[in-house]
Design a protein around this nucleic acid. Structure first.
Lengths: 231, 231
DNA sequence: CGAGAAATGAAACGATCGTTTGGTTATCCT
DNA sequence: AGGATAACCAAACGATCGTTTCATTTCTCG
């Protein structure tokens, strides 16, 4: 709601503190002293402590869901959809790392707030329908339970917040390419002598950092920029 | 440290409360009233609140690591090692669901206690060495970064605490089989006409609940029972 | 410049928390 | 049975927390 840049400092300090110590263990004085004001002065920006949590968390949560929504409306082949969904998920996590970490640690699963539960469910259903689409089209193996496979993928992606460190040696593109190679191709080595199904490109691609997969096939506005936070 | 069965009630109530509301947001009165005693009486069982957290968490954490240690000392092929590691990981999570959830939400990643960080690191290294072993033997694809693949697998496994519900329709065996099929075989369908490498069994197995993979190959004491908690 | 609004200071509040203390009841052991 | 020990009650302490209140400073803009 407020406009000034001080609000950004406050939310940033809150995110850092929430990620380090957790929401409940973070006091408003921690945040206030990090910004350089008194804790009571925070109440000209918020109405309660939970407003800070929502401000920290809303941006990346909506961004990840919206990007998957847009992707679902395209008519790309399922393999490419999985690739792009993974890529955008990792990219949002990398670009808003602290905020996304707070969301996954404080909101996902734990909360009773139905708003976020509905968003999680919607994301899961959208991604699962992509997997299901691939199974029905014969592109994906039919022995795979689509829901479990989707949950496995989401788990790998969200677990990034437990080991990824911004500024580290691994970048978002490399990680997402590796994830896709793993989930699409599997660990076990493939014999490249398969030419039975001509309509599918057997993408065991992206061995190095730069992807071999085409970036833009139909929709040119796949990754439309979005407002990062409410401010 | 204490012996009586009341101690089990206390730890159980603490685990349930920690999982629902988080460690910091759980008061000792929540736990005490769940057991039916006064909060001050808890201090004949503990020295501080954190003792409860450790009591909740120690069991499954050590059990998961120890089972992987035993498995690593065998000479099974890497594919089978991955299968068994996944299976035991899911089984421990299922059998100690609340306790393991508390560990993953309150300990993994967040804490400065070096004891747990070392355990997490050791588990990761052991599992990664299995993947690396598979790459070097030619069983696994060489384009996969072993560390990223390992982290992806661990993420999928630990994310179980966000969606699995004990008593639900899915059981541990089914989930772990699906995970293995996904990570080993990948989503993209395979042409079954591959007979180039004779020494590997191209296990795209376990479509239904009961595993096709042999349970016991060399070591008969793979899943030795262990003490569940310190009590 | 000067009035009005926004931002912050400074102190205090009620509530709750983890912990302590001391006394009382129950349990176990020989 | 009876003494020792464990288990529990009951109350209180100091600290800290989220929040409120009001005065004061700083900024905005005509």
């Amino acid at each position: 709601m407020p406009r000034p840049s001080r609000w950004n400092e406050i939310v940033e300090a809150a995110a850092e503190a929430f990620r380090t110590n957790g929401f409940a263990a973070t006091s408003l004085e921690d945040i206030a002293s990090a910004v350089g004001i008194w804790k009571g002065s925070l109440y000209h920006y918020i109405n309660s402590k939970e407003d800070l949590l929502i401000a920290v968390v809303r941006g990346p949560a909506e961004e990840i869901l919206n990007q998957l929504k847009e992707l679902s409306e395209t008519d790309l082949p399922p393999t490419e959809k999985i690739r792009r969904a993974t890529r955008s998920h990792v990219k949002v996590l990398e670009g808003n790392f602290v905020y996304a970490s707070v969301y996954l640690q404080e909101i996902a699963g734990r909360r009773k707030l139905p708003e976020w539960t509905a968003m999680d469910r919607e994301y899961l259903d959208l991604l699962e329908s992509i997997v299901r689409e691939g199974v029905e089209s014969g592109e994906f193996s039919a022995v795979t339970n689509p829901r479990i496979a989707t949950l496995a993928l989401i788990g790998s992606l969200n677990w990034l917040t437990h080991w990824y460190r911004p500024g580290g040696p691994l970048h978002a593109d490399e990680i997402s390419d590796q994830f896709c190679d793993l989930f699409l191709g599997g660990l076990i080595i493939r014999t490249p002598r398969s030419t039975s199904k001509p309509n599918q490109k057997v993408a065991t691609t992206a061995s190095k950092t730069k992807a071999v997969t085409p970036r833009k096939i139909t929709s040119p506005k796949t990754t439309k920029p979005r407002a990062k936070r409410t401010a």
